[in-house]
Design a protein around this nucleic acid. Structure first.
Lengths: 337, 337
DNA sequence: CTGCTATGTGGTACCGGTTACACATCGATT
DNA sequence: AATCGATGTGTAACCGGTACCACATAGCAG
């Protein structure tokens, strides 16, 4: 591997000139430029990224910290982040935190030592003090979903409350009269907001009762258990709005086992819009977040922040969209309201 | 951030001693050790990974190059790779190649400049000359599935041919008599081997005909199209063995649309063992690869290779296991043979 | 007493870039 | 003619580690 000094020698100029040429910083005579070009070509020279990193404290590397890449929500997000990053010449380090603060912090330590340029957090554990510390130390941070109290970083999220309302409205539209909600762990702000949206939409209805709200764990298993509990408690429920798609899948499974027809007896609606919703039977109606766009946006924002072209930190709330599918299709649609 | 020179000054020793202490290379007096410890503590010193990288050409970073993290096969693999890597103090860079040679090569260029310690290839595009070049330049490589002709690196794969046979046997066991196969793109060695296993298992049967083999694209859409074509060509087929789970899901969808009962009229079996197979209706029988184990193993091998504790390059062929589920459950099971 | 090995430490070149600063040239301005 | 800004280039310190080599001391074998 040729070094910048080799190039300098061959081109008959100093390393400073080569460096200026490479970074387009400072003046370089056109003729000199030609000589340098030739030398670089001849030596097949490629600047060493690590040396650059050491000298300039910039590594063109960002980190993506998420709970678990095996969770079907994240691969698409990660893909988007990586796509955008690589487009801008950045490389992505993947970190699975399992939503454990300890792991997160230890990743952060390692990443700092590696002069990472910035971090994307798609994690719920992170407390605002961490974010603040990062920001203070000059490491740009962008968060997904989670808003650290003291808006010390940009955030990308989607309209969970509105989404929940969309779901409930849709179910009402389809003629459902008793709509239950399986909500996610309340440490997750998304779960909280979706629950709030649901409650807001149904609290004025005559059948409303807190017993229609059951806690799940944002996973299939929890969706199953919650549905079993729910159907025992309220056999007359005719719709389930799950706080995320995985729990909706669980609901589907549980109902199928119980011999309950979907959507005939009970309609089911999820939230997130992960790919799985298209392969269930029946296909699952869901409130889709623009997952890829969220990833692309968060990545773009981080890079802007790194490169100093971001005016100010901001919270971006992306629109969600109801994707009606079989699981909420009722022959008596549009009968109500 | 404190540097090693700050520590040296405070401890009253030279940087060389600090370095020796940190790396446990060479002698350090116990008392000196104490002083150094104290100084490090006081300054909250953490050695700089980039500087280390530059000096030692070792960055404790590996790269995982795969076609697309959104493909449901890979998240679990990536998770395993990252788990093991982080256990050994390595960080993982994620690269999506889309199976395009150009992208792969450009990633490799970037990674080399970053002094990456090693690469895991879970990609099919890579030709052996690339691998050889890598190896020649001293960058350890481990491959998944794909065996570069001149065994210039370790490989982890699973028993595709045997798996295909397991699938066919199982279908025969369940009383199926005409078993079709939807095979994947033949550039993929896995697809080739599974097809070969299928052919070997059925070629001696009286109904055997090449028309029972249809090409798919390893994705849901291709599974759908292949199934449509197949059912038109052979309405009497009573089992479909798909070359991977995604195509099996496609088959399920297509059959459902056509009103064909699964498993009543046609049984369906996939290959891979991705999570999706548990949420289809009916749940999908599949030949499961030990995905997590494969990722963990490939990661472990790479790290061994990096650290020089790998004796010799080798090909590891992991066992697959038939996971029988509803999609192949026939009431007349065990009637045949 | 000499020589050898084990222990312990420091000086400094080196990894391969970036960049502040000094210096030189030259046409334009006053 | 003196001054100034734009252009162009080189020297060398610096980023923060690693590691080779020199050197010192001490115990022990011959």
């Amino acid at each position: 591997m040729a070094t910048i000094r080799d190039v300098a020698k061959l081109a008959g100029v100093s390393v400073a000139t080569i460096s200026r040429y490479l970074n387009k910083s400072g003046y370089v005579n056109v003729e000199t430029e030609q000589k340098i070009k030739k030398a670089i070509e001849a030596l097949n020279y490629e600047p060493n990224a690590v040396a650059r990193g050491l000298a300039g404290k910039k590594t063109n590397t960002i980190a993506l910290i998420l709970p678990d890449i095996s969770n079907p929500f994240f691969p698409e997000l990660a893909r988007a982040v990586e796509d955008v990053a690589s487009m801008y010449g950045y490389t992505v380090i993947l970190c699975n935190s399992d939503d454990e603060g300890v792991k997160e912090k230890s990743y952060i330590e390692v990443l700092k030592k590696k002069y990472i340029d910035g971090i994307i957090f798609a994690s719920n554990t992170l407390d605002s003090s961490d974010v603040e510390q990062m920001t203070k130390k000059g490491i740009p941070v962008v968060c997904l979903d989670r808003v650290p109290p003291k808006q010390s970083c940009s955030v990308v999220r989607s309209k969970n409350r509105e989404g929940a309302k969309l779901a409930v409205e849709h179910l009402l539209d389809m003629g459902c009269r008793k709509i239950a909600h399986i909500y996610g762990p309340q440490e997750f702000i998304t779960a909280k907001e979706r629950l709030a949206g649901y409650e807001e939409s149904v609290k004025h209805l005559d059948w409303y009762s807190p017993t229609f709200m059951i806690q799940g764990d944002f996973r299939i298993e929890g969706g199953i258990r919650a549905t079993e509990l729910l159907m025992e408690r309220h056999p007359d429920v005719d719709a389930i709005f799950a706080g995320n798609d995985l729990m909706a899948v669980g609901a589907l499974k549980a109902l199928h086992r119980m011999g309950v027809q979907v959507p005939g007896q009970v309609a089911v609606c999820g939230f997130d819009g992960i790919g799985m919703t298209e392969i269930t039977q029946p296909e699952l109606t869901t409130v889709a977040q623009p997952i890829y766009e969220m990833g692309a946006l968060v990545s773009r924002i981080l890079i802007k922040k790194i490169e100093g072209t971001l005016e100010a930190d901001q919270t971006y709330e992306l629109d969600v969209a109801l994707v009606p599918r079989e699981s909420t299709l009722r022959r008596n649609g549009h009968e109500s309201s």
